[in-house]
């Protein structure tokens, strides 16, 4: 079982709990679980906390997920952390923008735990436990 330090960014605490459960169902052991309600909170958290994986919503107040992934490139200790977007926004333009901003995966809500597993596990391949 892979042990990871995860950061889940979503303005809904219900959705953060659902994503957490999906990660556990994917077989990940969450050695640390960090949560943020928007991009600004997440960037502040990443200044003092190291993580291995980020799951991020797009539509959020204060700073949305697209802006967050763009700004993540400027965070020295987190710029290479894989980010998977989990969002209701399904348009091609959002997908293209998210991936060009640096996201490594894109999951549309509603989603199943299997979809989270399929997108997340390959990104953690090669990482030690």
């Amino acid at each position: 079982m892979k042990s990871v330090r995860a950061l889940i960014i979503d303005d809904s605490s219900v959705m953060r709990k659902i994503v957490e459960r999906a990660l556990r169902q994917a077989g990940l052991q969450l050695s640390e679980l960090n949560e943020a309600g928007n991009g600004v909170e997440a960037l502040a958290l990443l200044d003092r906390t190291a993580v291995d994986l980020i799951l991020c919503d797009i539509n959020m107040p204060v700073m949305d997920g697209l802006e967050f992934v763009k700004r993540l490139k400027g965070v020295a200790n987190a710029k290479d952390v894989p980010v998977v977007m989990i969002t209701t926004e399904g348009s091609e333009s959002h997908v293209v923008q998210a991936l060009s901003n640096g996201a490594r995966g894109y999951i549309r809500k509603p989603f199943t735990p299997d979809q989270v597993k399929e997108h997340v596990l390959p990104l953690l391949e090669g990482r030690g436990n």
Binding site: V14, M15, T88, R108, K109, P110
Partner: peptide, 14 residues
């Protein structure tokens, strides 16, 4: 319920 509405709206437009 807010998330359910959000997902229905997103799923509809998608």
């Amino acid at each position: 319920l807010g998330e359910v509405a959000n997902m229905i709206a997103g799923n509809f437009k998608n």
